[in-house]
Structure formats: C-alpha cells, structure tokens
C-alpha cells in the first residue's frame, strides 16, 4: 500500500464517519421526551445546592420550570434539604415512564411522570417519591407542577396527578422509554449488513492466508 492509497482510505473512513454522524443527527431530530426533561430538571435542582455550580444549575432548572424552581429551592415541597454541605441535594435520582394526555382545552399535550430521589438531610439520606406534571410548551416540555407523595417509606397527603404514571422501573414498572420494534429489526439488519461488508473487506484484503510456519 502506498501513502496515496492510505490517504484515500483515511479520507473514505472520515467521509463514512461524517455520513454516520449526519445520519444519527437526522434520526435523533424531533425527539423530545418528558421523562428526559423531568430528569434534567431534577438533576439541575439537585445541583443548585452544589458548591460552585449553583448559579448555572439554577438557571438550567428555571429554563425547564420557570415558576416552580424558585419555590422548590426555597424549601417548598420538602425536596431540598437545608444542610447539604455544599453537595448535590440528591445522592441519586430515578425517573419513570411518562403518561401523556391532552389538556382539557386540547391545545397542548401534558404528561405525568413519577420520580424518586435520595435527598441529603445533614449526614443522612431520605428517600422521596413524587410525581411531576409537565406541559408541552413551544420551547419544549416544561415542569408545571410537583407533588411529593412519599417520604422515607411513609405516604404523604397527595392526590397525585391524572393520568397516574406507571411505577418506576426499580419497582417493576416499565423503563422510561424503549426501542420500538422497528428499531430492533433495523438493528438486526445492520448486523447482517456489517457481516457482509466485513466479509467483503477481508476477501478484498487478500485471497490467501498470509500466515506461514517455518518448519
């Protein structure tokens, strides 16, 4: 192989990578899930107590929940503890699958989603369960309302939102989102295609095995 051939090979590989990048960007376009937005908001609210990133985290949380964030950060809903010692308010978080519904006036979509966090309380962690109501606004999903429904295993007075979201994955519920049947079929087809291309490349590289043994 000459350096020129090598250069062509590298250029072809780069072109292929760019094409794959554009392809992935194209199939990603248009997706916006309330589950992911709910998770982003919880992560941002949790980090609003984290030393060094408070301002940025607060800004991000307010982008997703303009009104609710201020109330939550002020201690509302019992979500954020007073003493987090400069750490994130949540040690970990989990968001469930959202249930979507049209609003009463039929103008935009709504979704409810269940969540669980382990919130810091001084040196301890408290398990909090809750639900969120999200609205599909022009700029994407926004968190509109929140209810904490369970604290450390004890139910708190709450009606929850309608329609009620399914249980969390860790409680036996469905994962937040799943690949569709078409994606699974497509994956298998890609596997077959890769096998064919890989075999062709090996055959192109040489018909004879290059390994020889000195006897």
């Amino acid at each position: 192989m000459t350096y020129k051939t090598f250069g062509i090979g590298v250029a072809v590989c780069l072109a292929l990578m760019i094409a794959i990048g554009f392809g992935i960007n194209a199939i990603n376009r248009g997706h916006s899930r309330p589950e992911g937005v709910a998770e982003d908001w919880l992560a941002a609210v949790g980090d609003a107590t984290r030393e060094g990133v408070e301002a940025d985290a607060t800004r991000r949380a307010e982008e997703i929940a303009p009104i609710l964030t201020e109330e939550v950060l002020a201690g509302g809903y019992g979500l954020i503890g007073r003493d987090t010692d400069g750490k994130s308010a949540f040690a970990d978080l989990e968001v469930g699958k959202a249930v979507r519904a049209q609003s009463e006036d039929g103008t935009d979509g709504r979704a409810t989603v269940r969540f669980r966090v382990h919130a810091r309380r001084a040196d301890d962690l408290v398990e909090l369960d809750g639900e969120m109501l999200l609205r599909d606004a022009k700029q994407g999903w926004v968190v509109e309302a929140l209810e904490v429904t369970r604290r450390g295993g004890t139910a708190t007075p709450s009606d929850g939102f309608a329609p009620p979201p399914p249980p969390l994955a860790s409680d036996g519920g469905p994962p937040p989102s799943s690949a569709s049947a078409g994606v699974w079929v497509g994956g298998v087809l890609v596997g077959v295609l890769v096998t064919v291309v890989a075999s062709a490349l090996v055959n192109w590289a040489g018909r004879e095995p290059a390994l020889a043994v000195a006897r």
Binding site: N28, G36, V95, P175, S177, V183, G187
Partner: peptide, 17 residues
Amino acid sequence: GDHSTGAIGNIGDTVTL
C-alpha cells in the same frame, strides 16, 4: 440513548442494539 432527545432514548436498549 439520550433520555430527552435520543432516537432510542434508553441507554439499556441502545447498548443491547
């Protein structure tokens, strides 16, 4: 697998694929 914007939206299914 990005939970908000990914075409699959699920890390587990993406790895499996």
